[in-house]
């Protein structure tokens, strides 16, 4: 079974279409979105509708999705993010809001755990970059493989033992063979707003039969996204970050 895992679409419809088209070529059976369908991007409603239409696709709530529903205050975010959230609230339909409101904040499927930021306190939105937070993640679940997003930076954390972990950024398209029994955290990067200085969309395919995780980077037509963002009056900073992958 080949499971596509993607995260942080952030209203970037062009990027979402690109990764979906790319994944179609790689024989994907199921999909899981790790949240943040909206925020930053000019097409929040379209992205929600597209993801909803995917057969057998499950979605987890992200902090931007929750903020759009006023479950948390958007004013706790950066000024750019909060501005876009307030704009997004006006753009999405009641049906889509209802859909976002019903999203779970964590999923456990077989030996895998899925959450937007972390599994130990999903609604607190803490980033997992270091050993301390990785350890909390491993303690919070018995799953062997943990898939997260939120930071927009693809990352692989491998637990060697209770005290020792390997933490490595994942550059570009790369494949990891899971030939041992060590537990791992995979940060799946971002589809709509990568921040690892690579502007291409990032997503992951987990092949349960081959026991491997494949990271893919997919280019997309950014000009259309930038044009739409400018047209609807989103902050110019967003365009700059998309171009540079920051």
């Amino acid at each position: 079974m080949r499971l596509m895992i993607f995260s942080d679409v952030h209203g970037n419809l062009e990027a979402l279409k690109a990764v979906l088209a790319h994944s179609e070529q790689h024989r994907v059976h199921r999909r899981i979105c790790l949240g943040d369908l909206v925020g930053y991007g000019p097409y929040p409603e379209e992205c929600i509708q597209l993801v909803r239409s995917l057969p057998g696709c499950r979605v987890i709530a992200g902090n931007h999705d929750v903020a759009t529903l006023w479950k948390t205050s958007p004013y706790g975010m950066s000024s750019v993010a909060s501005k876009v959230i307030l704009w997004t609230m006006e753009q999405i339909s009641e049906e889509s809001k209802q859909y976002l409101a019903e999203l779970p904040d964590r999923l456990d499927i077989a030996e895998m755990n899925f959450s937007h930021a972390n599994p130990y306190n999903p609604q607190a939105w803490r980033y997992v970059f270091d050993r301390k937070h990785a350890l909390r993640c491993f303690t919070a679940t018995k799953s062997r493989y943990l898939f997260i997003g939120h930071s927009h930076r693809p990352l692989l954390i491998t637990r060697n033992n209770a005290l020792d972990m390997d933490i490595q950024p994942v550059p570009g398209t790369i494949r990891f063979k899971l030939s041992d029994t060590r537990r791992r955290i995979f940060n799946c990067g971002s589809v709509g707003q990568p921040r690892d200085r690579d502007p291409r969309s990032c997503y992951v395919i987990f092949d349960t039969r081959q026991h491997q995780v494949e990271y893919y980077r997919t280019p997309y037509d950014m000009t259309e996204t930038l044009r739409a963002a400018q047209q609807v009056g989103l902050p110019a900073m967003i365009g700059t970050r998309l171009k540079k992958g920051l």
Partner: peptide, 8 residues
């Protein structure tokens, strides 16, 4: 059945 399982 796969679709049902995918939906939890």
């Amino acid at each position: 059945v796969a679709t049902l399982h995918a939906q939890g």
